[in-house]
């Protein structure tokens, strides 16, 4: 299975999904007008990983800003992780936030607080 790599733009994240290790990183801003189109290939990659590789997923997310439609897309992604986890798959999401960045911290809490897969919040200083 191929890796998935996208360079960062001013309004879309750098994405690096590694099929060999299950380590998946997303970093930057996320406020495209059409978030669904941006997230679609990511969802497809995760679906294929779950289907074909079926190993643990370590998902590291470090955002500066995300818009409302990106929040919705993250929720859809986490629903997929939820199903994987319920079927016995191993998932951990690490949500990074800069010290004092309450907005991003809260955004992550609201997306993850009902999740049954593992997640943790990681504070960092610039």
């Amino acid at each position: 299975m191929n890796n998935f790599v996208t360079e960062e733009s001013k309004y879309t994240m750098a994405v690096n999904l590694d099929a060999a290790t299950g380590l998946c990183k997303m970093q930057g801003n996320s406020y495209p007008e059409d978030a669904i189109s941006f997230f679609e290939p990511l969802n497809k990659w995760f679906e294929q990983y779950i289907e074909e590789v079926n190993k643990p997923l370590i998902v590291e997310i470090q955002l500066n800003y995300l818009n409302s439609s990106s929040s919705k897309c993250f929720m859809d992604l986490f629903d997929l992780f939820e199903d994987y986890s319920n079927d016995g798959g191993e998932v951990i999401v690490k949500w990074f936030f800069a010290k004092d960045d309450d907005e991003i911290k809260e955004a992550g809490e609201e997306l993850l607080e009902d999740a049954t897969f593992k997640y943790e919040f990681v504070e960092f200083t610039d």
Binding site: D34, I36, N67, S68, S69, S71, K72
Partner: peptide, 10 residues
């Protein structure tokens, strides 16, 4: 509904 209606809530 591209925006999922969350934008106005935010």
């Amino acid at each position: 509904d591209k925006g999922a209606g969350v934008g106005l809530i935010d």
